[in-house]
């Protein structure tokens, strides 16, 4: 393990809390709405969070370096629109899939380029590109919706392995396993955490920081493109409201999962569990026929609470004070 014995116990507790929360929620919903205990419903939980999930996994990398990407949702939306447009005009599925993935990647690369090469803080950069991507997707699609994708494509994302296990969950788990191994056991994770704590020191270790930054934003872009496909495979309609509040769900999952908004400390596994928790909430709210707004309201509250809880525990662990903060660059923006 890469952390001290002391820290492991804290982290395990955090993940323990998350797991407890997960089961607590399932049981609560089950008691309110007994249908929730049905295996099919629980499996559905796994299916509905795939797209948000892969983006949250990629976002964990970025937040670990004390960056952030607010544009994720609209990147996904624009990629979905591009998919719809390309497919409906060419009827070539492979081309459309490639176009969607490429679109996501390029947008992510664009973010990464600005973050790495200029001094504009990531929050501001991606706030601006968030509006930009949203605007472009609206310009492209107008008020149109794209649908009528072939059954084969849908099967890619709605197939159930052995008739039970949703394939979206398998994709999500696969991405999780790859990203987690690089994060927890790889050189990349080491550098990401180092950058979150003290970027200059990592630079003085001969690490090419700019490349890493461009790389992780591009990776997240690619995952957004993939998330667009997952979304379309599941819901089959490309329209210009797909991206609303997605960035916010993604960031909530990452922070709830135990990654610090100040960088340095993070956990892909925490994000994984947090995504499941959010999935349970979403499904539970749907079953209780509560609106999407209540779901978002709950998430907003969770996000603020996890920020506060993290700030308080971080202070206690004294991670913040031992960390050399960059002067002059306002950390709050």
């Amino acid at each position: 393990m890469s952390m001290t014995g002391n820290k492991i116990s804290i982290k395990l507790t955090h993940q323990g809390v998350l797991v407890t929360l997960l089961f607590g929620l399932i049981i609560t919903f089950g008691l309110i709405e007994p249908v929730f205990f049905r295996p099919s419903v629980l499996l559905d939980v796994m299916a509905i969070m795939g797209d948000v999930g892969v983006m949250a996994l990629g976002m964990t990398y970025i937040i670990t370096t004390s960056g952030v990407d607010l544009s994720v949702g609209y990147n996904q939306q624009l990629s979905a629109v591009v998919f719809g447009m390309v497919y409906l005009s060419t009827r070539n599925l492979a081309l459309a899939i490639a176009a969607a993935l490429l679109c996501g990647t390029v947008l992510g690369f664009f973010n990464g380029l600005i973050v790495a090469k200029t001094k504009i803080p990531p929050l501001v950069t991606t706030l601006a590109t968030m509006y930009l991507f949203r605007g472009i997707s609206m310009i492209l699609a107008g008020s149109m919706t794209y649908s009528g994708f072939p059954q084969g494509f849908r099967l890619f994302f709605t197939y159930r392995l052995f008739g039970v296990l949703p394939i979206q969950f398998i994709y999500f788990t696969a991405v999780f396993l790859i990203l987690d191994s690089l994060y927890s056991y790889g050189a990349l994770g080491r550098n990401l955490k180092g950058m979150g704590f003290n970027e200059e020191s990592v630079h003085f270790s001969g690490v090419k920081i700019q490349k890493i930054k461009i790389g992780i934003y591009t990776l997240l872009g690619l995952l957004c493109g993939f998330a667009a496909l997952m979304y379309l495979g599941r819901l089959s309609v490309a329209k210009t409201s797909i991206g609303d509040w997605i960035n916010f769900q993604v960031i909530t999952a990452v922070l709830l999962g135990g990654t610090s908004i100040n960088g340095g400390v993070g956990s892909i596994r925490g994000t994984f569990i947090a995504i499941l928790i959010i999935g349970v909430l979403k499904k539970g709210y749907t079953l209780m026929s509560l609106s999407g707004n209540i779901f978002n309201f709950t998430l907003g509250t969770i996000l603020i609470l996890s920020l506060i809880v993290f700030a308080v525990t971080e202070e206690r662990k004294n991670v913040v004070s031992s960390k050399i903060r960059k002067t002059n660059i306002p950390t709050r923006v």
Binding site: V68, L70, L123, L127, N247, F248, I251, T252, I261, G300, L303, I304, L307, I308, A311, T331, R332, V333
Partner: peptide, 9 residues
């Protein structure tokens, strides 16, 4: 905490 995240939430 960064005000942008607080106010987004």
């Amino acid at each position: 905490v960064p005000s942008i995240v607080v106010t987004l939430a």
